[in-house]
Design a binder for these strands. Structure first.
Length: 649
RNA sequence: GCCGGAGUAGCUCAGGGGUAGAGCGCAUCCUUGGUAAGGAUGAGGUCACGAGUUCAAUUCUCGUCUUCGGCUCCA
């Protein structure tokens, strides 16, 4: 007998060799029906695999990440089986799960291509195969047998994968006529897969390397019930309605023009207003934290970027240098603000008493992103960073870093961003030529970030090889409406630029010392931040940010004059107000302005005009009653203050 | 940059080898109204751009540009 410990710490005894599915049956029939995989001592297993010793287990259902992954992983195999049925001789790359669903990279024989039109027939085939209720069998196989088998099949992708595996740890999974190399785990039977949607098709380089062949990647998602798939598809449709590209156009926030060029956003009046509001907010916060605003030009001598290292690292992929009539003179559109800020630092001799110096600029930079990478406002070629550089003494570094984390949290709080990931990006010790600077400085910088995050009690994930070329960083990522993750705030520690620019200060010991730099941008870029903000709020911005805060709606043209008085009063009180004096009925005006997402609608007719009042309607909430004008003004001010209180004053 | 879609009115989209349609929006007029769509009339398109095939191309072919979904990249 062996002892099995369940997640609630209760212990049950079973025969040695008991399987997950048998344990589930012994607990309840319902669980036996719902269970998808079992976690045994932290490792996810097939339900049919025998357990040979005392173990801690967890039975995974659809509610568990591990359960879904098993389900989708098996779905990927089912899809592969369906594709092989139509295209015998297909070579299969990898078929993992993703956040929602799975994909498989395939290479069809004789240069055949899949297109979106083929997805439906593959879906149908998958349903047909699932209904055959084939058991899925796990087999351990020797490396040489595995190599032989896939060589015979002509699947060079799999043989490449096998050749990198350890002998003795290779497993195959078989269902019906389909066998695949796979670490598992899988469902016991394909019948659990009831609802299937193949969502898209895309090219993907083999092993993610652009020097390799491009395979066809088929994405899909499956569910144990049709209803769940239907709900999922509705959810995706809802998410598309929040897409910042759609809302940005609809709400008149920004536009693109072919004539101006790809990836170069045009901020329309309402978008510019929104952005200015965000900038003012951050300026106030930064003022409280001792920052000073600076302004630098949009171009700089190419020598500046040779000094910083940007030219060497990115010169080939940037906008090309700008020539002047003078022989040999070259300028670059600035891809970063830091070199300019270093030169501001150098404008004066600095004393240790001057530090830290915190230099902030809403600096517009230009980077030649690859054309396929451009995406609405989230990935553009010209954008404005809410940039700042902190020049400090090494003993001030950690404290300064922590203060920047505070600023980022102030912003997240003001905008109710609760669902973020904090990622520490360190250098890849295997690939040192990607970076500039000494190992010693890198160690110091990485250590400072790790300690600052610990002391702030921040939940972080750590990625090796994701650092900037001049230093490690802490990034904050937020998801958009479709679940894609975007990097917003970033804080980077840098010992290298101070060295390259010969930055120095005179210490208390009367010797020259080198300052440390922190690069930081809490929004990241105004463009990307606004994009994510639009998707978060579905365009319903908090009152303090809304480009138009109030719209006045006269009941009929008879009250237009009074409506204009209201309009002027509010605009003179710094409340952004517009008027809808179209020749329409009041119901129509309310509907149209609700749809424009204007926070407050003021209805004025005979009653209001006589009493110098307004009828207040809050967007999404309906009638709020009638108020005197100054009373309404206070009412609004109060709501704004509640949103911003304590954040910068 | 690479793979695969798409580009028709301001917007959302239908259509199809014989030079175009709907709804919404817009304009004008009627209506002057009380908390989510009042009515009538009308204007708007080199069917992304450039070549080719054809008696004839917006429709078919090729190229370019833009855009969408991915891959790769992201100072």
């Amino acid at each position: 007998m062996i002892k099995i410990t369940l997640p609630d710490k209760s212990v049950r005894e079973y025969e040695e060799g008991i399987s997950g599915i048998e344990i589930a049956k012994s607990i309840s029939n319902r669980l036996a029906k719902d269970v998808l995989s079992i976690t045994v001592n932290g490792e996810v297993w097939d339900l049919t695999r025998g357990i040979t010793g005392n173990s801690e287990i967890k039975l995974n259902t659809w509610e568990d990440r591990e359960g879904k992954e098993t389900f989708w992983h098996t779905s990927a195999h089912l899809m592969a089986e369906a594709i092989e049925a139509f295209y015998p001789g297909t070579r299969f790359g990898i078929g993992p799960t993703v956040d929602t669903g799975f994909y498989y990279d395939v290479d069809l024989p004789d240069g055949q291509q899949l297109s979106e039109k083929d997805l439906e027939k593959i879906e149908k085939k998958m349903i047909e195969l699932a209904r055959q209720k084939n058991d899925i069998k796990r087999n351990e196989i020797s490396k040489s047998d595995a190599l032989k088998m896939f060589t015979e099949k002509g699947d060079n992708l799999k043989t490449e994968l096998i050749s990198e595996l350890e002998d003795g740890s290779i497993t195959l999974y078989n269902q019906g006529n389909f066998t695949d190399l796979c670490r598992g785990p899988h469902l016991p039977n394909t019948e659990a897969i009831k609802a299937i949607k193949l969502t898209s098709i895309a090219g993907a380089y083999w092993r993610g390397d652009e020097k390799n062949k491009m395979l066809t990647r088929v994405y899909g998602v499956t569910f144990p019930k049709q209803k769940m798939l239907d709900d999922y598809l509705v959810m995706v449709e809802e998410a598309k309605k929040r897409d910042h590209r759609k809302l940005g156009k609809e709400m008149g926030l920004f536009a693109f023009s072919e004539s101006v060029g790809q990836g170069l956003p045009l901020w329309l009046p309402k978008g510019a207003q929104l952005r200015a509001q965000l900038e003012d907010f951050l300026k106030k916060v930064q003022k409280k934290y001792g920052y000073e605003q600076v302004i630098t030009p949009h171009i700089g001598d190419v020598k500046l970027y040779k000094t910083s290292g940007h030219y060497e690292k990115y010169g080939k992929d940037s906008f090309q240098t700008i020539k002047t009539p003078a022989e040999g003179e070259e300028y670059m559109l600035k891809p970063m603000n830091c070199p300019h800020h270093c030169e501001i630092y150098k404008a004066f001799p600095r004393s240790y008493k001057d530090l830290p110096i915190r230099m902030a600029e809403f600096g517009t930079v230009y980077r030649y992103e690859m054309s396929g990478e451009l995406h609405g406002l989230t990935r553009v070629r010209g954008f404005t960073q809410d940039d700042a550089h902190i020049f400090c003494r090494p003993d001030q570094l950690k404290d300064e870093f922590k203060k920047v984390i505070d600023i980022i949290f102030i912003i997240f709080k003001a905008l109710e961003f609760e669902d973020y990931v904090a990622q520490i990006s360190l250098r890849d010790p295997e690939n040192t030529e990607k970076y500039i600077g000494t190992a010693e400085n890198w160690d110091k910088a990485e250590q400072a970030i790790i300690e600052a995050c610990e002391e702030k009690g921040l939940n972080t994930v750590t990625e090796l090889g994701e650092a900037a070329f001049y230093g490690p960083k802490l990034d904050f990522m937020i998801k958009d409406a479709l679940g894609r993750s975007w990097q917003l705030g970033t804080i980077q520690v840098d010992y290298n630029l101070p060295e390259r620019f010969d930055l120095e200060y005179i210490g208390a010991d009367d010797n020259r010392h080198q300052p440390v730099m922190i690069h930081r941008a809490p929004f990241g870029s105004m463009e990307r931040f606004v994009a994510v903000l639009i998707e978060h709020t579905a365009g319903k911005f908090p009152l303090w940010l809304a480009p138009e805060q109030v719209v006045v709606l006269p009941i009929s043209e008879k009250y237009n004059d009074y409506a204009k008085k209201v309009l002027n009063f509010l605009n003179n009180s710094d409340i952004r107000t517009v008027i809808d004096d179209r020749n329409e009925k009041i119901g129509r005006k309310i509907r149209d302005n609700e749809l424009k997402r204007i926070p407050y609608l003021l209805i004025v007719g005979e009653n209001e005009a006589e009493a110098e009042m307004v009828s207040v309607r809050r967007q999404g909430q309906g009638d709020k009653g009638i108020m005197k004008l100054p009373e309404f003004k206070d009412f609004m001010t109060k709501e704004i203050n509640e949103q911003l209180t304590g954040l910068y004053n």
